[in-house]
Simulated scan of single mutants.
Amino acid sequence: MSRRSSVDALPQEVRDWIMRLRDQGATYDQILAKLRELDTLSVPVPSRSALHRHLQEAERVKEMVARQRMIAETMVRELGEVDDSKVARGNIAMLHTILTRVQVAALDAASDGEGKLDMSPGEIMQLAKAIDHLGKSAKDDVARTLAIEKRAAEKARSMAAESASRAARERGLTTEDIAAIHKSILEG
């Protein structure tokens, strides 16, 4: 497993502050100068290369989040906001893709001789929960689709029964015959 970055050893508030400085256009040297001004740090100021690696990784994560947001927005635009089922299926597919990437990373880690994936127990637990939620989402999507189909079929039968009853009345059939036709269509 790789060694923990000296930037990761900094308190979360300091790392957030570093990201704000970078977002405001500060250079690596300016950020390091600001860190050296802080005399309350209980850990050493990271090297320029460690800061560079940390900020590069943060940029990769930001790009990935932006890309996922763009995909989600495109899906909503393409599918329409009214079809929750298609959006749910799209989310399930995206989560499945992410899980596949993690599996590939695990295989790569195992094949490079180290045999370990650089994941914390918390990350592994979150991955397990994601897999569990993926299965439940797929099951819920099937149940939702079946319920929608059932409602649509009931509505179609009801409309057909009303239409047939109206036509039967116009042709002069008896009330009992109309009721029998109506019942026959509804019980379909």
Score class of each variant (00 low, 15 high):
M159T: 03
S42W: 04
M75Q: 09
I131N: 08
A130R: 06
R69Q: 01
E149D: 14
P44H: 02
A66S: 05
E13D: 14
T27H: 02
L10R: 03
R4F: 05
P121M: 03
K86C: 04
L186R: 15
V104F: 01
E63A: 07
Q24Y: 10
P121K: 02
D23A: 13
R77Q: 04
M75S: 02
W17F: 13
A179K: 13
G135S: 14
L38F: 10
V76I: 06
A138H: 12
E123G: 13
D177I: 10
V43Y: 05
I124L: 13
V61K: 09
A167D: 10
I98Q: 07
R157V: 05
R15H: 10
E170Y: 02
G172C: 11
D23F: 03
L95M: 07
E81I: 10
A161Q: 09
K155Q: 12
R53N: 08
A143F: 10
Q30L: 12
V87T: 11
A128V: 04
R166M: 02
P121V: 06
M64P: 00
R36V: 06
Q68T: 01
A66T: 03
M1Q: 08
L51G: 05
A138I: 11
R4M: 13
A9H: 10
L79M: 08
L134C: 02
G25D: 06
M125K: 04
L173P: 01
E149G: 10
A161D: 03
T100Y: 05
M159F: 02
S49Q: 15
S49P: 02
E187S: 14
S42P: 01
A106E: 08
A143Q: 11
G25C: 10
A88R: 14
E162G: 11
D16Y: 14
K34G: 15
M159A: 14
Q68V: 00
R15M: 14
K136S: 09
M119E: 08
V142S: 10
L10F: 02
V142C: 08
K183Y: 09
A110K: 09
K150I: 13
L117C: 05
R77H: 09
A143R: 13
I98D: 04
I18C: 10
V45Y: 03
T145P: 01
M75R: 02
A161E: 09
T100L: 06
I124R: 11
G135L: 04
I92D: 07
M119Y: 04
H54D: 03
D177Q: 12
L127Y: 13
A138W: 07
A152E: 14
A26P: 02
A164S: 04
Q68F: 00
T145V: 15
L99F: 09
Y28S: 09
E162N: 13
A33Y: 13
L32V: 12
A160R: 11
